[in-house]
């Protein structure tokens, strides 16, 4: 199959979408990758995948995003996908307080199953439901600060800040990786002290643990 323009990228980041069932993870993903929103989208069973490339700091970053099912029962299956992820969007619904309160549990999930350097962004979704709001922006912001997460409110329905959320986390990851590679002054293919692995050159591969998926992607790129 011929290489399409969107296969040209500098960095490849694996991101996971996590959070309670019904907070809008799948719609955030479809809004970001296909600019679509579906009020009656089916529940996610297991995991679903989508991808999109964005440009930041003059680099093309390809995001491979794994959308996970929110129900507790699927945790055993979905947590397997945390491995190798360099970013996580922890999504809650601003109109459902319990989904915000459960953020703690999701953070624990990440601590237990994801790589320790994973970049996490707390996302308060459904910001269009102003009249039903039960978690204030300040509260979300404050919680994110205490946990060292970045924070944003989005609405997959009216598309506000969705693009920004993804671009910001991808940029954060990129800068982190870039900074680390500068600090360590390591050569291509090296492993930094932080556990982030990077390879210089176009088709660069970034992972904070399991390299299998990412190195394959870069190989595909090379092979065209």
């Amino acid at each position: 199959m011929a290489v399409r323009p969107d296969d040209e990228y500098d960095y490849l980041f694996k991101i996971v979408l996590i959070g309670d069932s019904g907070v809008g993870k799948s719609n955030l993903l479809s809004r970001f990758t296909r600019n679509e929103f579906n009020l009656e989208s089916k529940s996610t069973i297991g995991v679903e995948f989508a991808t999109r490339s964005v440009q930041t700091d003059g680099k093309v970053i390809k995001a491979q995003i794994w959308d996970t099912a929110g129900q507790e029962r699927y945790r055993a299956i979905t947590s397997a996908y945390y491995r190798g992820a360099v970013g996580a969007l922890l999504v809650y619904d601003i109109s459902k307080r319990s989904s915000f309160e459960n953020a703690e549990r999701w953070l624990k999930e990440l601590r237990d199953h994801a790589d320790q350097n994973i970049v996490i962004m707390l996302v308060g979704n459904k910001s269009d439901l102003k009249h039903l709001r039960s978690v204030s922006i300040e509260e979300g912001q404050q919680y994110a600060e205490t946990k060292g997460l970045s924070f944003i409110e989005t609405s997959a329905l009216d598309a506000s800040h969705v693009e920004e959320a993804f671009v910001r986390i991808l940029t954060d990851i990129y800068r982190l990786v870039h900074k680390r590679s500068l600090t360590t002054g390591d050569s291509a293919g090296g492993k930094s002290a932080s556990g982030i692995v990077y390879q210089a050159g176009r088709g660069e591969t970034i992972s904070v643990g399991n390299l299998s998926h990412e190195s394959r992607s870069s190989k595909r790129k090379c092979c065209g």
């Binding site: 069932s21 019904g22 579906n38 009656e40 989208s41 089916k42 529940s43």
Partner: peptide, 8 residues
Amino acid sequence: LDVPRTAP
């Protein structure tokens, strides 16, 4: 949560 989004 799931019943309304069944067989949309």
